[in-house]
């Protein structure tokens, strides 16, 4: 039997083998297998309820998978809380609803995990935080509270908060879906910038332009299964699977 361990090579940072997940009777993930190489940018598409969010959330244990093997950065994801903690330090996640901590200032949001998880000094953490806030274009908002920022600004703070932990892998869970149209661009610009900086990225998104432009591979999921894995050009111009064709015809012709 092939296990995740035997499939792992040096450059494979994420290896999933036959992951299954149920919510009660509902089979949310069915035998999902995927290997991601370091620096790869992967965009996951699919209709709602297809399990794309559930899939990337199993990678940092926000959701528990019930069978199959997951290996992230060479660490097996199991019930071992030390492994989980180690993986979470290396894997950053950006959420649809930003999930900033409303009782902390922008700077405190970004430095919280570096100080308490990485155990870096406050000075060093603040330096790193300001570096990332500058990178996402909002260093001047550091002293404000999340409630005082626009949605786009909040999502950029959330990205800076994730990056301040200096992760290798970034998970984006529909990062632009809760934004007003005019703010989507500012967040996508940051994501494009990151995709070109060598991070390994798995992004669940509905932004086809983003997928076409920066993805190395596009994955299409339906009913808890990976239906198609393809290059962006082939995926959009020459989809193999019937379900993919239907999906693309629905989103591209309206």
């Amino acid at each position: 039997m092939t296990t995740a361990a035997t499939l792992t090579k040096m450059e494979d940072v994420i290896v999933c083998h036959n992951i299954n997940k149920w919510y009660g009777d509902y089979h949310a993930l069915r035998d999902v297998s995927l290997t991601v190489k370091a620096g790869e940018v992967i965009v996951i598409l699919g209709p709602s309820g297809s399990g794309k969010s559930t899939f990337i959330r199993t990678l940092n244990r926000l959701e528990e998978h019930q069978s199959g093997d997951i290996m992230v950065d060479g660490i097996t994801l199991s019930h071992d809380v030390r492994n989980i903690a180690e993986i979470r330090r290396d894997v950053g996640m950006v959420f649809q609803q930003f999930n900033l901590f409303p009782h902390l200032t922008v700077l405190e949001n970004v430095t919280l995990a570096p100080i308490h998880v990485r155990k870096w000094s406050r000075e060093r953490s603040e330096e790193i935080a300001m570096k990332w806030l500058t990178r996402v274009g909002i260093p001047e908002q550091a002293g404000k509270y999340p409630g005082q920022l626009s949605g786009g600004q909040q999502q950029r703070v959330a990205i800076a908060r994730t990056l301040a932990m200096e992760p290798n892998i970034l998970l984006f869970d529909e990062p632009t879906s809760a934004l007003d149209p005019e703010m989507i661009k500012e967040v996508l610009d940051v994501m494009r910038d990151l995709a070109r900086s060598g991070y390994t990225i798995l992004a669940v998104t509905h932004e086809m332009g983003f997928a076409r432009e920066v993805a190395d591979r596009v994955i299409f999921m339906d009913a808890g299964q990976i239906v198609e894995i393809n290059t962006p050009e082939d995926f959009f111009t020459n989809p193999k699977n019937d379900r993919t064709k239907l999906f693309l015809s629905q989103i591209l012709h309206h």
């Binding site: 940092n60 950053g92 959420f95 999930n99 995990a113 998880v117 908060r161």
Partner: peptide, 15 residues
């Protein structure tokens, strides 16, 4: 979402 963000950042359950 607050709990998920805290966990994703690697904070322990007590933190």
């Amino acid at each position: 979402g607050q709990t998920e963000a805290a966990r994703a950042l690697g904070l322990s359950e007590t933190q």
